[in-house]
Design a protein around this nucleic acid. Structure first.
Lengths: 212, 212
DNA sequence: AGGGGCATCGTCCGAACGGATGAGTCGCCG
DNA sequence: CGGCGACTCATCCGTTCGGACGATGCCCCT
């Protein structure tokens, strides 16, 4: 019997998920919580095989929660289970030690299979995610912005002018322009607006979370 | 007994939702489907009291589906049940004839209550939504962009230059600039990048749907 | 008949942006 | 040590934006 801990701040979804899992003879939900904090709390005091963790939650968030849980002694396997699949989310989750990344539009059977797979020591990535991860380590290396370029891009993405960016980062405007030129090349765009869009859609930078 | 039709393309969520509803003695899910098309199909051939409709789905989408269903003879009441709450989504849903708009992070009891409320002829808006709707009719009237301004904003939001926008819309650049100036005023921003951000976060324009 | 919003186009000008190029410092890696 | 990349700054130049006018025509509403 594989024990599962469900972490999701959508009560309705959580309940449905728990019920679905409990229909499986070899799976059982031992607890369901709505924050990463409580998940960590539970995992430190109880034995759990697999944690199904939502990413975007109020509080510490799923990525931090995953990291905290995988740092425990004899840690449970964590599967990130979320609606979102930006690069930032994926890397954060995998870096945090997640052994699986599946999307909420998956079929129930896929979820069950993922739990079994991970419980037995394997790893599971949703097809879309798998592509991303593979491509990331191939050609997308040049897509990597330097730290400073990311700083600039972040400020760019909130609508600041070159001058304003320069002031915020204590740079000259010339330097900002240089960084921008590099950013445009790396993102393969022509202007700042397109760069902001690219940054948002590819998930290079973090959204301010759900728009309202 | 109130009969409910559940429309959602996330199988896991749909199943959980159906189970939850069926726990209520006075509610029963008579069918659950994964597209607006099948929902319309079902509603034309069967008697249903309330339809729980997801907004963002593959195919015709929830707003169009809502409009189609409420156009039937003796139509069921439609509650839009979604994760998203941008202005575009809300107005689309309400214009389409939805009698309720609740978010997927609602508590199960809230959902049950909403179904009962709508079935008995009432209307239900999630608190966040209610605020939006009310504010929209108050001060936000100047926030209303004209059709043409929206056209421009949409192209702006994919990173096009003034000239490119002009060509796409068969306008002179001068006209585009005039529209932009109006857009900036109405959105209370200083430049195009900020306008794009504002458009995205306030949901004035439609996202190209889920980023990947 | 008049007013107002919308859409269209024009001009002018200063500010901002984007591209090209060069160049200096620093740290890392072989 | 020598090369390379990141970071910094500068100058020059052409293009693009954004603001501030004005102007016309249309349609709707009072």
């Amino acid at each position: 019997m594989i024990s599962v801990l469900v972490v999701d701040d959508h009560p309705l979804f959580r309940v449905g998920l728990c019920d679905a899992i409990n229909t499986q003879p070899d799976l059982t939900v031992v607890a369901d919580v709505d924050t990463a904090e409580s998940a960590m709390d539970y995992a430190t005091h109880h034995q759990v095989d697999v944690v199904l963790m939502d990413l975007r939650m109020t509080g510490m968030g799923g990525a931090a929660g995953t990291a905290a849980i995988t740092a425990l002694d004899n840690p449970p396997k964590v599967i990130v289970f979320t609606t979102f699949s930006t690069d930032a989310d994926i890397t954060a989750a995998l870096d945090a030690g997640a052994r699986g990344y599946i999307l909420k539009d998956a079929l129930p059977d896929d979820v069950f299979a993922a739990i079994r797979q991970v419980a037995s020591g394997g790893a599971v990535l949703a097809p879309v995610i798998a592509d991303r991860v593979i491509n990331r380590d191939k050609g997308a290396r040049n897509n990597d912005l330097s730290i400073r370029e990311l700083d600039v891009l972040e400020l760019l993405a909130v609508g600041l002018s070159n001058r304003a960016i320069a002031q915020r980062l204590h740079l000259s405007e010339a330097t900002v322009k240089t960084h921008l030129a590099h950013i445009y090349k790396k993102l393969d765009v022509e202007n700042r607006t397109a760069a902001v869009i690219a940054a948002n859609t590819t998930g290079i930078i973090r959204h301010p979370d759900q728009p309202n």
